[in-house]
């Protein structure tokens, strides 16, 4: 059986909220290392890869590998019943029809129990190669969100160019052009505000802003976001979570003009 207890329901609520507009039905693959999810959006342009390591739960028990086929809209309805600070426990049998969710508020002695019906999902699984990216940029997640939202007001696409001097986001639209350049900076007192650029070669790629703005719904999960780019390969947008868990998004680049 599976039994996984999260100190705060907030984590799962935020993860599901960040991905539910991108993917609808997906398997939560549970094994002894944790709970993983991989799913592509319908247009096969974006991919979500989530890993909640066993260490993120306390306790965590998973006797046998189990795929929990979940409709995220339905899961959202159930998670709405959990307060952010509630203790959340996920439970399932070895061949489950339902996922049992328990929310506990220790202050008020309230215990809520929900069973979510599961579905059989025949999911395509993609092998993501280990990639040495040409550019790795770490920046505040709210900054990245602001840039994407601002540029989407002008255009559907953004060009991302990285050099040792900085990272430039630029777009061209009907009403005009826009560009935001971030230079590397280190703030000793507020490391969350740092912009760090590791570069082995300059990169220039174009992406759909609609997807990037969608990824930025995860900004509440981490104060920083990591962008990994190489020419002609998908962008990796990573939000690191506590206990080496993560929420990653991959986005195929646009090609040609």
């Amino acid at each position: 059986m599976l039994e996984a207890r999260l100190e705060q329901a907030d984590l799962l609520k935020k993860v599901v909220d960040a991905i539910k507009d991108l993917v609808q039905d997906c398997n939560f693959d549970c094994n002894d290392s944790g709970v993983a999810l991989q799913a592509m959006d319908n247009s096969h342009v974006a991919l979500v890869s989530m890993m909640l390591k066993a260490e993120s739960f306390s306790p965590y028990r998973c006797d046998r590998n189990v795929a929990l086929g979940v409709n995220l809209t339905s899961l959202t309805k159930v998670l709405r019943a959990a307060q952010n600070e509630d203790i959340l426990t996920l439970k399932a049998e070895d061949a489950p029809d339902v996922l049992n969710l328990v929310f506990e508020n220790t202050d008020s002695d309230r215990l809520s129990e929900y069973d979510l019906k599961l579905m059989d999902i025949d999911q395509e699984h993609l092998g993501i190669p280990d990639t040495e990216y040409a550019a790795t940029i770490s920046l505040p997640s709210v900054e990245f969100r602001r840039i994407c939202v601002d540029l989407m007001a002008l255009s559907e696409s953004v060009s991302i160019e990285t050099s040792k001097d900085g990272i430039k986001f630029s777009c061209a639209g009907d009403i005009g052009n826009g560009a935001v350049t971030l230079r590397p900076n280190t703030n000793v007192e507020k490391p969350d505000q740092n912009v760090e650029i590791e570069l082995t070669e300059p990169v220039a790629l174009t992406f759909s802003l609609k997807y990037l703005v969608n990824f930025c719904k995860a900004a509440g999960l981490s104060k920083t976001v990591k962008l990994c780019l190489s020419n002609e390969v998908p962008l990796l947008v990573e939000y690191a979570l506590a206990g080496s868990s993560y929420l990653r998004f991959y986005l195929a680049p646009k090609i040609g003009d």
Binding site: V45, L126, G127, K254
Partner: peptide
């Protein structure tokens, strides 16, 4: 407008 690539061109089904 640039064309949009497909992720399955980069990642192989397993």
């Amino acid at each position: 407008t640039p064309l949009q690539n497909d992720l399955s061109e980069f990642f192989v089904m397993v």
